[in-house]
């Protein structure tokens, strides 16, 4: 199984623990990664505020590179996944638009033919690898751990761009991964809502209110940790949890795991390789609970 790997900016920046943990987990899963080193940022929905067509052009460039390799794309970020899926949806549903965008790619000798599939690691796990092949790899089941799933907006909406109509099980894929690693999924209202990261610099008060609400709701329902396939959600839920807690009178004690960290733990990888020591909210009590030494 081979993928053109699109790691995104944040997995090597603000969440630098994500990239190595994803690579380590991919190796265990037998996924061969061919990294798209010349690919640009997706625009993250921010560039698209100013110029959607320009955003689509940058993403078409990345798609063309994957097409040249003859590989599907693997993402490890809900936001990258969503922005790329939306761009691909527009490009593949309007041939004249695709032709116009391709004009922009010509000077670089690239052309996007509209054939690329883009899949988050979360979907690859459930759809390509499958529960039956995954189960034997779980050598350290996280029995007794209660985990609240937190998807991130962009991997859920809009459903038509993300193929959720054809594959509705994607909407509950995190819960199934949590079960597969031997932990117990905690249902809570925030799981499909916004983490608040996009407005962090614009309206910090509202952004922190979202962090406080989601971490609080998860705690109230007995979660030991939350898991997210989105590093931007991680930046806010983990990085800003202390500030959110101090403004809302709660305790910053809800560890936030990246999806590959949860998997990696259950596959016997060391917390250090997974970068668990790099979180702002310490994961040490969580590790004690499943008797893993940091």
């Amino acid at each position: 199984m081979k993928y053109a790997f699109f790691p995104g900016c944040v997995s090597r920046g603000g969440c630098s623990e994500l990239y190595p943990s994803a690579v380590a987990v991919a190796e265990k899963l037998g996924i061969e990664l061919d990294e798209l080193t010349s690919a640009s940022c997706t625009g993250a929905g921010v560039l698209q505020e100013k110029d959607q067509r320009l955003g689509d052009t940058l993403n078409a460039r990345t798609f063309a590179m994957a097409e040249q390799k003859g590989l599907p794309i693997m993402t490890i970020c809900s936001t990258c996944q969503g922005v790329m899926s939306q761009a691909n949806h527009r490009l593949t549903h309007d041939p004249s638009y695709l032709a116009e965008v391709n004009q922009e790619l010509k000077p670089e000798g690239l052309e996007y033919r509209g054939t690329v599939t883009i899949k988050h690691l979360l979907w690859i796990l459930m759809e390509e690898i499958g529960a039956d092949n995954l189960r034997p790899l779980i050598t350290r089941p996280l029995t007794g751990m209660r985990v609240a799933p937190f998807y991130g907006c962009y991997i859920l909406r809009p459903s038509w761009a993300l193929g959720l109509e054809e594959a509705p099980e994607r909407e509950t894929s995190l819960e199934r991964v949590i079960e597969l690693v031997g932990a117990e999924p905690v249902d809570f209202p925030g799981k499909s809502l916004c983490c608040g990261f996009p407005i962090l610099t614009i309206n910090e008060k509202n952004s922190l209110a979202m962090v406080a609400r989601h971490t609080g709701d998860a705690r109230e329902r007995g979660a030991d940790a939350m898991v997210t396939p989105c590093p931007l959600c991680h930046l806010n839920l983990d990085g800003y949890q202390p500030k959110a807690a101090s403004t809302h009178g709660s305790k910053p004690d809800m560890p936030i795991l990246h999806l590959p960290q949860l998997l990696g733990l259950a596959m016997g990888l060391s917390p250090r390789v997974l970068g668990l020591q790099r979180h702002i909210v310490s994961a040490s009590r969580l590790l004690d609970k499943v008797k893993v030494r940091a």
Binding site: R12, G13, G14, C15, S16, E17, T37, S38, A39, S40, L54, T57, L58, R61, E104, P107, E108, G239, P242, Q277, R278, H279, I280
Partner: peptide, 25 residues
């Protein structure tokens, strides 16, 4: 907090190969 945990983006930011095409777009 991020610094203490080693959770900082790299200080030296590198451009991607082929960035001139991004600038042209």
């Amino acid at each position: 907090r991020a610094l203490v945990r080693g959770k900082m983006p790299p200080i030296f930011h590198r451009a991607i190969p082929g960035v001139e095409h991004i600038r042209r777009s």
